[in-house]
């Protein structure tokens, strides 16, 4: 088993290597306008992604549960989902391509941080079972992957909106388009977050006989969702846009990170078993 863990960690470092190579090529390609290099940066990411997928599947088989117990598993799977969501949305929205400058480094950073945690094998508590738990966790990761895209556009807006004449910023779509993409992906993230909460409430009802318990993790998840709701409300009914909206979305994104990665550590939460 120890050898299995050692292989798992080693493979994860190999994936980090591929993602780092992809990030360097991607940043170089985008910043210096080298289209060929930017296109080629997708190759190491694809290689890394295939190995990453295999690594997650093998680890799943080895520990007997999905990647949602140990911090290393959680970070690795969020990293994987951020790549998946980026490529899936890229198929539908080709103008998403420059977001890779945000997604690739996020993926390798999360996976590298995951490798610093002890990947020891945790047994799933009996309450952590069922298909709704899988949906619950998967949709939070999908939401986070989507929100990374939205925050990338918000940051693009803030950078380009300063009037900087940096060439690569000028190659990004017009400000109004960037702003709209940030808005739209925030909406997608908002919906995925809602679905994750729904699945969680069904799971909680099956496991503990209550659909909502104002547990710290649940409460922070709802607070985050309401912040996204405020953002969308401000955009739609108060015509918020531009820098103001972008800054507010960056704040909402930070809230989502706190909600996802920090509140799970609270000992008083029923979710405390998770992410310990």
């Amino acid at each position: 088993m120890d050898r299995g863990i050692a292989y798992y960690v080693a493979v994860n470092w190999i994936i980090v290597f591929f993602y780092v190579v992809a990030t360097i090529a991607n940043v170089y390609g985008l910043v210096f306008g080298n289209e060929k290099m930017e296109r080629r940066s997708f190759r190491p990411v694809a290689c890394g992604f295939v190995i990453h997928t295999t690594s997650i599947i093998l680890w799943w088989r080895m520990v007997g549960h999905g990647p949602y117990m140990a911090p290393s598993e959680v970070l690795s799977s969020v990293s994987w989902f951020s790549i998946v969501m980026f490529f899936l949305f890229l198929l539908v929205y080709p103008r998403l391509r420059p977001v890779s400058i945000f997604v690739f480094p996020s993926a390798f950073l999360m996976l590298a941080i995951a490798n610093f945690y002890n990947p020891g094998i945790r047994t799933l508590p009996p309450t952590f079972g069922g298909v709704w738990l899988v949906f619950h966790i998967a949709f939070y990761k999908i939401a986070l992957g989507t929100l990374i895209i939205a925050v990338a556009f918000s940051v693009f807006y803030l950078m380009k909106g300063r009037g900087s004449q940096v060439a690569w910023l000028q190659r990004l779509p017009e400000l109004s388009v960037i702003d709209l993409y940030a808005y739209r992906f925030a909406g997608f993230g908002f919906i995925f977050w809602a679905i994750a909460m729904l699945a969680g409430s069904i799971w909680a009802y099956k496991s503990w006989g209550r659909y909502w318990g104002w547990d710290p993790v649940e409460t922070w998840s709802l607070i985050t969702w309401l912040f996204f709701g405020v953002y969308l409300h401000l955009r739609r009914f108060f015509r918020w846009n531009g820098s103001r909206a972008a800054w507010f979305f960056v704040f909402c994104f930070i809230m989502s990170l706190i909600s996802y990665f920090v509140t799970s550590h609270m000992g008083s939460s029923v979710h405390a078993e998770y992410f310990r």
Partner: peptide, 27 residues
């Protein structure tokens, strides 16, 4: 009114934020 709706969301948010910083008796 958009202000009423926003105020209601913010009030709900403020309640939850308070409840997450001040320990609730039932928890």
């Amino acid at each position: 009114a958009r202000n009423t709706v926003l105020a209601l969301i913010l009030l709900a948010l403020a309640s939850m934020l308070l409840a997450s910083f001040i320990p609730q008796a039932f928890l």
